[in-house]
Simulated scan of single mutants.
Amino acid sequence: MPEADTTEDEKPKKASKLPLIIGLVLALAGGGGGFYATWSGMILGDGPETAEAEETLEIKPGPDVSYVDVDPLVISMRAPSNANHLMFRATLEVPALAQETVEKLLPRVIDVLNSYLRALEPRDLEDPAALTRLRAQMLRRVQVVAGADNIKDLLIMEFVLN
């Protein structure tokens, strides 16, 4: 019976918490070091030094362009359409040196746009991507009339089906 007394007094040893504490300290140190390296710009280069350099940069002027407004167009739609009219207004982006030339050709530009928009079927306008496609078609037609070097872009300001 003396053997029974000795087994009751012995308790199993608890696992040490030292590895857990060391792991936690190393994780915090690694996270802090990573944050500092990123914040200071050592890793990604977007730290305070580059922010200060951006503030001192001189703002350069944009490209030398002008804008020529196209007179608003009101197009009557064909019969199977839900809408009766299309109201269209655009602006042409042109190089500053070509502004006068494009302004002289504006009646021809309006004629080309008017002819193209009148030829559209109502189903051409139903597609969600229709405006992008129509814009590209109109830009190409205007560039043919006024010269590709004279027209940089066609900006649609108003496109309303009424």
Rank of each mutant, 00 (worst) to 15 (best):
E10S: 11
L155S: 09
P107Q: 04
S40I: 11
S115H: 12
L154S: 01
I75E: 02
L105F: 10
L24Y: 05
H85K: 11
K17A: 12
E8V: 13
L161W: 00
R133N: 06
R89P: 00
N114A: 14
A29Y: 02
A136H: 04
K11V: 13
V109D: 01
N114I: 12
R78F: 06
K11H: 13
P63G: 13
D127W: 05
L26A: 07
E93I: 14
G23A: 06
E58M: 05
V109E: 00
D5G: 15
K14L: 07
V70F: 00
D111I: 10
L154P: 03
V25P: 00
V102I: 05
L20A: 11
T6F: 09
D111V: 10
G31L: 03
D64L: 08
R89F: 06
L134Q: 05
T101C: 05
G23V: 06
A29M: 08
A4E: 11
S40A: 12
I59P: 05
V25W: 00
N162F: 06
M157G: 14
L139P: 00
G47W: 00
L44I: 15
K104C: 12
N84Q: 13
K60R: 09
E52S: 08
A4F: 09
L97P: 15
K60I: 14
A96F: 12
L73R: 01
L117Q: 03
A27V: 11
V94F: 03
G147H: 04
R135Q: 08
V70P: 01
L28H: 04
T132Y: 12
V160E: 07
Y67D: 07
Q99M: 11
A15Y: 12
N114L: 08
L113K: 06
T101M: 08
M77V: 08
V145D: 03
G45T: 06
A96R: 15
N150F: 05
K17Y: 14
V70L: 03
L120Y: 04
G23C: 05
D46A: 14
M1Y: 07
E103C: 02
Y36L: 12
G31Y: 00
L92A: 03
R123L: 10
G32I: 08
T50E: 10
Q137M: 09
P63Q: 13
R140Q: 15
K60Q: 13
Y116S: 09
F159V: 06
L105S: 10
D149P: 07
F35M: 11
D111K: 12
G47M: 03
E126D: 07
L131Q: 04
K152W: 04
V142S: 02
I151T: 01
P12L: 04
